[in-house]
Design a protein around this nucleic acid. Structure first.
Lengths: 189, 189, 189, 189
DNA sequence: TATGAATGAGTGTTCATTCAT
DNA sequence: AATGAATGAACACTCATTCAT
């Protein structure tokens, strides 16, 4: 079935995009990686840009789906936030290459596709913001600007793709706990 | 004086790199922006990559210098952290284009230059970590993993280049207070 | 088959390199000569320099092979020398363009490739020197400095590419006899 | 006086042309070598090509003048030939850089200047040929094709620029004797 | 499905030369 | 005499994409 080949191509592309960047990766590089000729690749992909779009789209989609399912659960806001952080970091670190491509390379997309990714990222932000708002309403959290606070949390979590490789000893679980503690309790004694 | 022209070129390059990305910006684009022929540009720059390096290097240098001067002050760790956040965000937002180029485009640099920037970013991280450690020693902060915590704070602060443009109503000052509150006191009521 | 095209390209390149010189010949010139787009040429060649290298290498290789086969024959040193001169001149004149490129343009090669050609030329010199030494041992020749003498003979023979075109009436055979007579018997009556 | 500067420039150019070749030597290289700005060089030279022409022209002129003065002497043809060889090799080796530029780089000249050099080289050939003819008439030499024989001798002598550097132990005098012996007496015992 | 030849626009960079100061 | 900014054409080479086979 062709979906095997397509998947193989996507995997190779993710690896290459992560290593060299989207623009520095040639179609030839991808073809070499999967043992096809450059021309043959076009039986499986519409274009190099589309390939990147598929990767980025599927990645952000997964983030959104996971978070949505957390929001749907019947647990406290605090628990939702902790779960969100743990899930987000686990997913980021388990698929570090894909996550890197998502956050670092999606900018190379044309206006249209980029807009789609941006909208989905925005949706993700909305969901995080909603958790905070739930916490405020339930009296668990004290937040004056939930959107900016959500952006702070997301920034901290997403930045991980830039440093995790070097600090390899920590697990996603470890980091979640440190992050959760920081965001929930703060630094002050 | 030639430094005027060089500066003009750097400014134009920053703007273009921010808008289109480094790789999508051609030397021709930069030449057009400053009203020179493509070839004439090379009186002022060594290469397109070197131009990017200059921009990124000067940017990270400024971050480091500012933070170093904060560390040198005789104030509490808490005050240092607050000051660090305010200064970092102010600088990021006042020079949003440059900051964007630094964090988004430096990856396009070759191995050598990229390593230089990485080392300097690492130095910045060390300084933030040291603030946290000072706070622990003074009894102000409770931190188990100062490096990871510093990465969280930095991630939150650096992510700003990705969202500030759309949330234009907030000042750097506003955001610093929200961030400081979050990191110092946490979300919990 | 691609080897046809590759050969066609090499032939066109030889002709152009001989006429205008390697550096004055643009890749565009070669492309025009074979009716391809500039970019399409790169399906067949690795680089312009590599193209020159192929030409030069194949030329000097042929010289060496021919001379080696002469040395392997069971004939007198005098006969070997006469045969060497005849063969060398015949090959030079029959492939005057290639020979010209070899002796005139190989200097444009980068250090590595140039070294390879130099080493092979040196090997050729060694073979000629050996003929002279054989002649000395057999008592046929009187030579005090076989290497320098070989260089004299080779210089005379290789210089031909610089003047043959204008003196077109003489055949390689004619010239060989004149050269052989000069080197064997000398000018004196 | 400006002729000093001009001379300095010519000397630097010779050295560079010999090392890197005319085309690979930039005007900047020459300017650097004499401590001037690129633009300032044009107070002393008409063009890069003209600079090459001056060098080549002066070199071939000297060869011709020297040979002419030999022909004017009242000595035997044999002595003239020996003297020609000695003088030619001495000049070649004493000014190896200039000689190299003359024989290797003059081809880079445009049609007009190249023609001038070619005509002067031809004149040199004529003079050598005349020596041989004199020897035939005086009964000293046995030569059937004096022009081709002259070309053989010249080829051997001019080729020297290609190998002398590596065989540095031999003096011009040494080589002249070997060459003279070869051309006058031949190899045969 | 797979090939590989071909495209053609585009890339960063070099360079000899000019000229106002 | 000397500068150095500016030119503008030229250069080798790359690359995503197409398409006939």
């Amino acid at each position: 079935m062709s979906s095997n080949k397509q998947n193989e191509i996507a995997l190779a592309a993710v690896k290459l995009f992560e290593q060299k960047g989207y623009r520095a990766t040639s179609v030839q590089d991808i073809a070499d990686a999967v043992g096809l000729q450059k021309g043959s690749l076009y039986h499986y992909i519409a274009s190099k840009e589309d390939l990147l779009m598929q990767i980025a789209h599927q990645a952000i989609l997964q983030f959104n789906e996971q978070l949505q399912s957390i929001l749907d659960q019947d647990i406290s806001a605090r628990q939702k936030l902790e779960l969100m952080i743990r899930t987000h970091l686990t997913m980021s670190i388990d698929n570090l290459e894909t996550t890197t491509v998502l956050w670092r390379e999606a900018f190379a997309l044309g206006e249209g596709p980029q807009e789609v990714i941006a909208r989905m990222s925005d949706e993700y932000l909305n969901l995080v913001t909603r958790i905070l708002q739930e916490g405020v309403q339930s009296g668990e959290f004290h937040v004056t600007e939930p959107r900016v606070t959500a952006l702070a949390i997301l920034g901290a979590c997403n930045w991980v793709y830039r440093w995790y490789q070097q600090t390899g000893s920590l697990t996603a679980e470890d980091i979640s706990q440190i992050f959760s503690h920081l965001f929930l309790d703060g630094l002050l004694t």
